[in-house]
C-alpha cells in the first residue's frame, strides 16, 4: 500500500482520485453501485416496454412525442457529458480553475435539460391531458423518464456542492475522488438517456 507515501510528500499525484485507498474504494464501489443502477433502470425499461401499448384511450406515444424537443434534450445531455470529461482532464492536470469552470458548465447544461423536461411534462399534462393516472402507459412513461430526471436533478445538486468544496478545500486527495465519481455518475445518466431517447421516444414514434 503506497497510498500514504504519496499523500505525505505534499505533491498531488497525476490521478489524485486514485491516490488513496479510500479514493480507489470509492470509485470501485461506485462502479458496483452503477451495476445495481443498471438493473434498476433495466426493470423500469422492462415495465415501460410491457405497458407501452396500454394507453387506455389516452394519448399514444406517437401522438405525444415531438422529436425536435427530444433531440434538443439529447444534445444538451451529450454535450454536458463531454464537458464533464473535460473537467476530469483538467483535474488530472491539476488545473482547479478550469475544473470548476467545466463543472459549472455541466451543471448549467444539466439545469437546461431539466428545464426542457419539466416544460415537456407540463405540456403533456395540461395540453394533452396525459397525467400519471391517465393510463398504464402514462404511469410507466412518467416513472421511467421521471426517475431519470430525478437522477439528473440529484446530479446537479451533487456537482454544485462539489464546486463549492473545490473553492473551499481546493483539489486534494479527498475531493478528487468525489469529483471523479460524480463525473462517472453523470456519464451514466447520459448512457441511460441514450436508451431512453431510443426506446421511449424514437421507438415510440416508430410504433
Amino acid at each position: 500500500m503506497t497510498s500514504h507515501a504519496e499523500t505525505v510528500n505534499g505533491e498531488l499525484p497525476h490521478e489524485p482520485e486514485k491516490a488513496t485507498l479510500e479514493g480507489r474504494n470509492k470509485i470501485l464501489s461506485f462502479w458496483l453501485f452503477l451495476g445495481g443502477e443498471a438493473v434498476l433502470f433495466g426493470t423500469l425499461f422492462a415495465t415501460f416496454l410491457a405497458l407501452r401499448n396500454q394507453t387506455n384511450d389516452g394519448p399514444t406515444a406517437n401522438e405525444l412525442f415531438q422529436l425536435p424537443m427530444t433531440a434538443a434534450a439529447t444534445l444538451i445531455l451529450l454535450v454536458s457529458s463531454l464537458t464533464s470529461v473535460f473537467a476530469i482532464q483538467a483535474m488530472h492536470k491539476h488545473k482547479v480553475a478550469a475544473l470548476r469552470v467545466w463543472l459549472m458548465v455541466t451543471v448549467v447544461l444539466g439545469l437546461g435539460f431539466l428545464g426542457l423536461e419539466i416544460y415537456e411534462f407540463a405540456e403533456y399534462v395540461t395540453a394533452e391531458k396525459f397525467g400519471m393516472t391517465t393510463s398504464a402507459f402514462s404511469s410507466a412513461f412518467y416513472t421511467l423518464v421521471g426517475f431519470h430526471g430525478a437522477h439528473v436533478a440529484f446530479g446537479v445538486l451533487w456537482i454544485s456542492v462539489l464546486i463549492g468544496q473545490l473553492y473551499k478545500k481546493g483539489l486534494t486527495v479527498v475531493t478528487a475522488p468525489k469529483v471523479y465519481v460524480s463525473a462517472m455518475y453523470w456519464h451514466f445518466i447520459d448512457v441511460v438517456w441514450v436508451f431512453i431517447f431510443t426506446v421511449v421516444y424514437l421507438l415510440g414514434k416508430v410504433g
Partner: peptide, 22 residues
C-alpha cells in the same frame, strides 16, 4: 415496490387492470 407505491398513493396504473395495467 415503487410502482406499487405509486399505484396506491399517486393513483398510477401499473397494476390497475381497468386502466391497462398488468
Amino acid at each position: 415496490l415503487v410502482l406499487l407505491t405509486f399505484d396506491r398513493i399517486l393513483g398510477a396504473n401499473f397494476f390497475e387492470v381497468a386502466n391497462g395495467g398488468s
